[in-house]
């Protein structure tokens, strides 16, 4: 449920950026979120709909790009998508460590009018 606070911060940033560009309306917001980040898309959308009321972001479409987490095996060097259970390498069973792929948590771009 920390999506409330996350959404609040995100809304603040996009309104600032849009205002800086002289825009009067935000129509689309693109977010990139790695699977290792703890956030639920639907929950962000719900809070966004409420919080953006009477702002220039009201009615904007939220687009979530989800990034699957990738791990690298410390034994064979294999680069793989995190299995549903555990973190081990599916090829050799060795221990895997997270790469930066899957930790994304940023606002990529917005469309404004």
């Amino acid at each position: 449920m920390h999506e409330y606070a996350v959404t609040q911060g995100m809304l603040q940033t996009v309104i600032q950026e849009a205002t800086k560009a002289g825009a009067s309306k935000i129509t689309e917001i693109r977010l990139v979120i790695g699977d290792l980040s703890t956030i639920i898309d639907e929950s962000v959308q719900m809070y966004f709909d409420i919080m953006s009321e009477d702002t220039i972001a009201q009615g904007a479409k939220l687009v979530f790009s989800r990034v699957k987490a990738r791990f690298r095996c410390t034994v064979c060097g294999n680069d793989y998508e995190k299995p549903a259970k555990g973190f081990d390498c599916p090829t050799c069973g060795g221990m895997g460590l997270p790469t930066d792929i899957g930790k994304e948590f940023y606002i990529e771009s917005i469309d404004v009018e």
């Binding site: 996350v6 995100m10 950026e17 825009a23 948590f105 990529e108 917005i110």
Partner: peptide, 14 residues
């Protein structure tokens, strides 16, 4: 018009 932002979602908090 598209504006590229590339900022952490947590920027306000950070």
């Amino acid at each position: 018009m598209k504006i590229t932002i590339m900022k952490n979602i947590m920027e306000a908090n950070d």
